[in-house]
Amino acid sequence: MTLFFQILGMCLFLLVFLVLYRVVFGPGIFNRAAAVSALGNKTLIILLVIGFLYHRVEMFVDISIVYALLNFIGTLAVAKYLEMEQRKL
């Protein structure tokens, strides 16, 4: 079972690098904001997989709830700021 979680973690980690291409090279700020939101989702799952690997799930569940919340509020704040400023970056 440990081997299964390790392979799962490695696959998700490689997916993070693929999304980083869109964060760096996305033309304009909107593509980068969408890619950062996707990155936050993958980070959430990687946190829980690490919790399973170290047999201390209770600790990592609290951290991942807070991270899901902060990702949501951050994306809303960026969208609201860009809508208010009405300019294309």
């Binding site: 909107f30 939101s37 994306t75 960026v78 609201k80 860009l82 809508e83």
Partner: peptide, 10 residues
């Protein structure tokens, strides 16, 4: 909801 807010801003 976050996706909706981003698309509205776009």
């Amino acid at each position: 909801t976050a996706t909706h807010a981003l698309s509205r801003a776009g």
